[in-house]
Amino acid sequence: MHRIENKVIWITGASSGIGEALVYALVKKNCKLIISARNEVALQRVRENCEQKEHIQILPLDLGDFKVMDQKVATALSFFNTIDILINNAGVSQRSLIINTKFEVYKKLININYLGTIALTKALLPYFIKMNKGHFVTVTSLMGKFGSPYRSGYCGAKHALHGFFDVLRMEHEKNGIDVTLICPGFVQTNIAKNALTADGSQQQTDDVATQNGLPVAVFTKKMLRAIEQKKFEAYIGQGETKGVYLKRFFPKLLHRVVLRSQVK
């Protein structure tokens, strides 16, 4: 197992939810952190909640602004002179039926969840190649392995991440680069409240499945263990993780199970 202590780690989507929980867990492991999100005020709040503030640097980032990624990577590298791990955690979910969803909503989901993540990853990749080491950790979803109603665009973007990062791993294993895909199930965060609806507005309400999901601190502990083990993929949740195996071996059964679940 490769210990995560004392690493320099860049976390996107660090202003809330899983990203915020990662900050609190990693700073206790004496890691030096670069934390990014669009909301700089929220990032300041997260930093103020930590005792070792000098180990945390704030770098505001909008994944939809593809053109600034090279500049953002240069700035990130200037903080601690290196980066060991990039945790691609930022993203947005969806709660709307296909028939009702505006095409612009699908473009936004792809731009943030897929293309923005790819743009940032590609900008950092030359540095990892030069150093002959590095670890890309990308938070996808169980929805990157199978689908569920009301999440068509989100599922599409998360499936795409799996295709891209599987190939990145194949192409750059020779450069000492590791890739771990983290697939959360239901976790107690604001993902449902922030999810995009058919017209692109936020849902602003929680759902029962999310409320009954894993506590974010429990999820984070399991995620960090998967990173240290350098797993290719980790499915972290409760009973919903069984869907991965049903999809592989009994896809028609999964279809019926998901429809019966009435999860929205």
Rank of each mutant, 00 (worst) to 15 (best):
L63K: 00
A90S: 02
T140M: 00
H135G: 09
E104R: 13
I34Y: 07
I83H: 06
S78D: 13
G153F: 00
L120Y: 12
I58S: 05
L161C: 05
I87K: 08
V46C: 07
A74W: 13
P126E: 08
V23G: 10
K32H: 11
Q57A: 02
Y24W: 04
K130W: 09
H135K: 11
K130D: 07
A42G: 14
E104S: 15
F146N: 07
N100K: 15
S78L: 07
P60Y: 03
Q44T: 13
E104Q: 15
E40Y: 06
L142D: 03
S152R: 05
N88R: 04
Y24Q: 15
K32W: 11
R151Q: 08
Y154M: 10
R47F: 00
R47E: 10
L142N: 10
N88G: 07
A160V: 15
K107P: 05
V105W: 10
S148W: 01
S36A: 04
E54N: 13
T138F: 04
N39D: 13
G116V: 01
A119R: 04
L86M: 11
Q52V: 09
R151M: 05
F80T: 02
P60G: 05
L43D: 03
K67Y: 10
L77H: 08
F79E: 07
C31R: 02
M143L: 12
E48H: 10
K32Y: 06
L61V: 05
K28C: 10
G147S: 08
D84E: 05
I99N: 10
I34M: 06
M143I: 04
Y150R: 02
C31D: 04
I129Q: 09
M143A: 11
N88K: 07
M69T: 06
A90R: 00
N30S: 13
E48Y: 02
L97W: 11
K53F: 11
F128V: 07
I56P: 02
S141I: 00
H135V: 08
A42E: 12
S152Q: 09
A25M: 06
F136R: 02
M143E: 12
G116N: 00
A119N: 00
E40C: 09
L77G: 06
H159E: 04
N100E: 07
N88Q: 12
K158F: 00
G153N: 11
Q94I: 01
K158P: 05
Q71C: 05
T101G: 06
R38F: 00
S96Y: 07
P60M: 13
V105S: 14
G147N: 03
V73T: 11
S96M: 10
L86E: 13
L63V: 02
N111Q: 14
L33D: 04
G91P: 14
G153V: 01
Y127W: 10
D84P: 03
S78V: 04
K158N: 00
A90Q: 01
I56H: 03
I129E: 11
G64A: 14
G156Y: 09
L77T: 09
I85S: 08
L43H: 06
G147H: 01
